[in-house]
Design a binder for these strands. Sequence first.
DNA 1: TTCCGAATCCAACAAAAGTTCCAGAAATCC
DNA 2: GGATTTCTGGAACTTTTGTTGGATTCGGAA
Lengths: 231, 231
Amino acid sequence: MWTNWKAIPYFAGLSACALERIEAAARCHNYQAGALIFAEGDRCAGFHIVLEGLVRIYRMNAEGRLHTLSLLRPVSAFNEVAAVDGGVNPFNAVAVTQAQVLVISHDHLLNLMATERTLLSNYVQLLAHVNREYIERLEDMTFRSIPSRLAKLFLYESTYAGQIAEAPTQLTQEEIAAILGTTREVVGRALRSLLNAGLLEKRGRHMYIADRHGLEWLAEHNTMPAGVAES
Amino acid sequence: MWTNWKAIPYFAGLSACALERIEAAARCHNYQAGALIFAEGDRCAGFHIVLEGLVRIYRMNAEGRLHTLSLLRPVSAFNEVAAVDGGVNPFNAVAVTQAQVLVISHDHLLNLMATERTLLSNYVQLLAHVNREYIERLEDMTFRSIPSRLAKLFLYESTYAGQIAEAPTQLTQEEIAAILGTTREVVGRALRSLLNAGLLEKRGRHMYIADRHGLEWLAEHNTMPAGVAES
DNA sequence: TTCCGAATCCAACAAAAGTTCCAGAAATCC
DNA sequence: GGATTTCTGGAACTTTTGTTGGATTCGGAA
């Protein structure tokens, strides 16, 4: 089992001895593509780390619509909240592709934190970071239109997929819709409007960023940038 | 200065000596009604606790619309995130009424947490709790209609305003709108529809809960409960 | 290649939310 | 008490988002 423990921010700065204890406490699980890792509302599933594959964190409402909170690649942690407070899981997690996931139970985590104060203080900092992301997400949902959220998503995907100015999307419209909290049709419309506003460009199957500043304007305000062909 | 330190969850279980250190680090501030306590994006304002009065936590978008994240009464903490990570404040805080607020700077807080591990572990637990609230809030914004959010708000206000089955609202429509992330007119419409669906009842100036189960249904699903007069 | 399912495109429509506007009612201030 | 401000009620309208359904394209499997 590969594990470069030091690459995981939660475990940064820990002594070799502490890392050994963590390794002893951790269990490694394998999931097939599509398999449920844990469900919202279920008893605390513990602290998770994606080692391999892609994991989707999502919630579902009564009408069956999905909201993808995040798509996690290695090496990312998830379920930090339930892991630490022992409450029920706040969302669902599924393996999108075949995935390998490291799990530390609530009890083990508390034991480790009781003696390793570095782990505890890392945890505080990282929980704070997660918190900021949620605040940001919340404001996006309250204030931004769907084209605006879409622009933001493109900008985000482009930065994290390397420093290339143009960033393709390998997400389907359905998946984008789940991330933005809307439906496929609406995403299709929004894509079309960004396309013929000249902010995106279609080459073959994929879309690329054609006007980064325009996208940034749209992501910031809710209106199309001036001097652009309207739909 | 009144301070029943033990009533503050962050300081639960601390030794008398630790409480003394905290007391020494804390500064007490007084604000007039309407005064800004700190602004979003400004350098970290530290850990805050409302001792007296009412404090509004909010964000504002480019078009000037407000989103009230919370209205805090004594004794509540706020700005936990920036206080711990030292980053900029994630939102604005104003004193709604004349208010007294206790402040512990980022540096002092880190110093305290470095030696008082109980404080540190309280902090982890409470950050986790705040985190859950944001997840919940986020789902409300993505999935629930405005009447549904309004129903939820009424139910929430009623529980925390004592155990009385009927709960009045002393919030104005404008304030409700800021909490729900919408505009006054829309709140007015939603109130009217809950009113003539028989879920709320108007007595004099205030509105009361007339059908708690109906409200719960509406808050859970997005549709009016069956067997109710439609608007 | 041909077929099939998945993904997309597009139009038309329905519903929800946001906007504008104005008229009263209530509270507050002189 | 009168004037002013704040809050509320409600209509009419626009925009955005959600929904439905059909046509089309693409890519992989038989």
